[in-house]
Simulated assay, not measured.
Amino acid sequence: MFEKTDVLYALERTALGFRTLKGIDSVVIDQAPAQSIAYEEWDWEVGVGLYGFYKQACLTGDHGMKDALTDWYDRQIAQGLPRRQINSTAPLLCMALLARETGNEAWRSVIEDWAKWLVNEMPKTKEGGFQHLVKERDNDGQLWDDTLFMAALFIGVAGDWLERPEWIEEAYYQFLVHGRFLGDPKSGLWYHGWTFEGHHNYAKAFWARGNAWITIAIPELFELVGRRYGPAARHLSMLFKRQVEALIPCQLETGMWPTLLDQPDSPPETSATAGIAYGLLCGIRTGQLSESIRPVAVKAAQAVMARIGEDGLVREVSDGTPMGHDFEFYRNIPNVPTPYGQALASLLLIELLSHETSIHNAA
């Protein structure tokens, strides 16, 4: 059973763990950790954390948190933003949401220029997919499932705020083209990646964290920009429900999901479990999923909370995972505390607070 105080305490500890991983030593635990943003790195891990920060501010009505976000983005812009690529786009999702809410014209040019680059200049695969361009490598011809959260959600929100419907259409198209090449029609699960250079899904791995990005991204797309383009929205909704149906029997007795979803003896993975549980709860809250799925999400949330240590670090999170060519590659990824593990756990905890009464009754 979840008590609100337990969830709030876990959220506070998780924020502390995030700061610890970013090398920030002077944190006063008794003060609300969300009132300041001390980390400076502009990358996808921080971008996921910023999104959770924004969602918590919206849930609690905390204007101080939104002021902290505004200050953080102003400081980053003044310092100069990094090279544009898929992962460095992730922090722009929260920025675009805050700009849409406040009408912050000072950020218009940054958001508009980055969105134009994504649509018009960033390398594309065959059939127009966002190539998974990252700072480490270009990944020519490759589609990765995390691209949808890192970049496609931003382009949709930017299009909604700046009244550029073609950008919203582009966001929907990216979901459709990724679903075409990464979604497995037989199982309903999603592969980690696809390459047009050889036309294959690499190891054909149903990687758990990759699937979690999909479980998050589809309901988020609908919530952030609405159900646009009826047939496309209907198709994505079916992909989401089919994936959820496939995920449920893959859940372990512990409440966790294994690193390779169809291989229960592969290592259990907390960041994937947090992301999947978050997506399930979001789907339930927005009416896309049945209430009957709530116990699955609650069981997963209990497992995640049990893996948040007193130091705030989230345990059993697998390290960063590039594309693998065999199953052993995924099995051998070591577990380490990571910023994205902290961020995904935080997103789940914030979503739990939105379901406080229902979660209490279902636990």
Rank of each mutant, 00 (worst) to 15 (best):
G17A: 06
G17V: 04
G17M: 03
F18A: 09
F18K: 04
T20A: 07
T20E: 00
L21N: 01
L21I: 01
L21D: 01
L21H: 03
K22E: 09
I24T: 01
I24H: 04
I24V: 07
D25C: 00
S26E: 14
S26L: 13
V27T: 10
V28F: 09
V28I: 00
V28M: 07
I29G: 07
I29T: 14
D30E: 05
D30C: 07
A32P: 10
A32G: 14
A32T: 04
A34Y: 15
Q35G: 07
Q35N: 10
S36H: 12
S36F: 13
S36C: 07
I37V: 03
I37N: 13
I37F: 15
A38S: 11
Y39C: 00
E40Q: 12
E40L: 06
E41C: 12
W42G: 07
W42A: 00
D43S: 03
W44F: 11
W44R: 02
E45D: 07
G47L: 06
G47D: 07
V48P: 14
G49F: 14
Y51R: 06
G52S: 11
F53P: 01
Y54G: 09
Y54C: 09
Q56P: 02
Q56H: 15
Q56W: 15
A57D: 05
A57C: 04
A57K: 03
A57Y: 09
C58V: 11
